[in-house]
């Protein structure tokens, strides 16, 4: 039994129109996504903007309404957030994309990081203070920071505060929604390495959402590639980067920039070739509406969205 199991998840947003605000159509943000995450591993969700990767993450933690499908966490069905016990909230936490809007500007760091502790653990003021200081030290901030306000920190430091808050309750699963996209490159590496460290230390499982293939390659054990609300390919990091099967994945991998200037020409020709292949064989890989087919196994770990006949 997998640690977290997502079965045929669908999140549709209604489009209201007409005089009476009837539902005219649906935006199918997530349209039939299934995957499993093993304990202690990192699962990467990749895709372009609007492919539904963030919506998937938010649906799992209960911020978006789930239209259909099932989410099973440690054998318990947690699809409906209202019926879910509060322990689930304790075990699943989220790191948000924007370190600026995800921290309340009017609160001190102490209040921000202690918020989950106040909700779930009965602690005295002194214990709470001590715990927050420990957490801040763990994320590499000085313990004196507790009396400061978020605006007194840089983007990277703020993201660390966000991480400290997410790990305060010792959760088992952390949904990291583009945790480094808003940070500059030098800080990105810092935060990512730090996230790997605490993963080992605390035995965390990550659902890592990103559009940055370099980051994903660095962080993830397994990867799912999304396109227009569906998976086009799923597999281990080697499967995806060494032998991409789907034309969309191929083009995505080809788009990773190469910093070696002597290979510039070669790389560009390769990209051109993949682009031509993409345009020629587009209809072999996508149906009439331009959506991906359902996943077919290529190997025991590797699944690709191909038409039934192959």
């Amino acid at each position: 039994m997998a640690f977290l199991e997502v079965k045929d998840l669908k999140v549709h947003f209604p489009i209201k129109g007409g005089i009476f605000g009837r539902t005219v159509d649906y935006v199918k943000a997530v349209d039939g996504v299934s995957f499993e995450i093993e304990k202690g591993k990192t699962y990467g969700l990749v895709g372009e903007s609007g492919s539904g990767k963030t919506t998937t993450g938010r649906a799992i933690i209960g911020l978006n309404h789930i239209t259909a499908g099932k989410i099973v966490f440690e054998g318990k069905d947690i699809t409906d957030p209202r019926k879910t016990k509060q322990d689930f909230r304790k075990n699943v936490q989220m790191i948000f994309q924007d370190p600026y809007s995800s921290l309340n500007a009017k609160k001190r760091v102490l209040d921000i990081v202690a918020e989950p502790l106040r909700n779930f653990e009965k602690m005295s003021k002194a214990e709470e203070r001590k715990r927050v200081q420990e957490l801040l030290e763990l994320v590499g901030l000085s313990p004196e920071s507790i009396v400061k306000y978020p605006h007194q920190f840089s983007g990277g430091q703020r993201q660390r505060i966000g991480i400290a808050r997410a790990i305060a309750l010792k959760p088992q699963l952390i949904i990291a929604d583009e945790p480094v996209s808003a940070l500059d490159v030098s800080v990105q590496a810092q935060v990512l390495n730090f996230m790997r460290e605490i993963q080992k230390e605390l035995g965390l499982t990550y659902l890592f959402i990103s559009h940055d293939l370099g980051v994903i390659r660095h962080m993830c054990d397994q990867i799912g590639i999304m396109y227009r609300g569906r998976f086009v390919e799923e597999g281990t990091t080697e499967d995806i980067f060494q032998s991409p099967q789907h034309i969309y994945t191929k083009r995505l991998v080809a788009a990773i920039p190469d910093i070696d200037p002597t290979k510039r020409e070669v790389h560009m020709q390769f990209r051109q070739k993949v682009k031509e292949e993409y345009e020629q064989s587009y209809h072999d890989y996508f149906d009439n509406q331009g959506l991906a087919y359902s996943l077919q196994p290529v190997s025991s770990t590797h699944y690709v969205a191909l038409p039934e006949k192959g």
């Binding site: 938010r58 933690i61 209960g62 911020l63 509060q86 909230r89 304790k90 699943v92 936490q93 989220m94 948000f96 995800s102 921290l103 309340n104 918020e115 989950p116 909700n119 779930f120 966000g162 808050r165 309750l169």
Partner: peptide, 8 residues
Amino acid sequence: QASKTMGS
């Protein structure tokens, strides 16, 4: 949203 996920 963060507050919601933290069970407030």
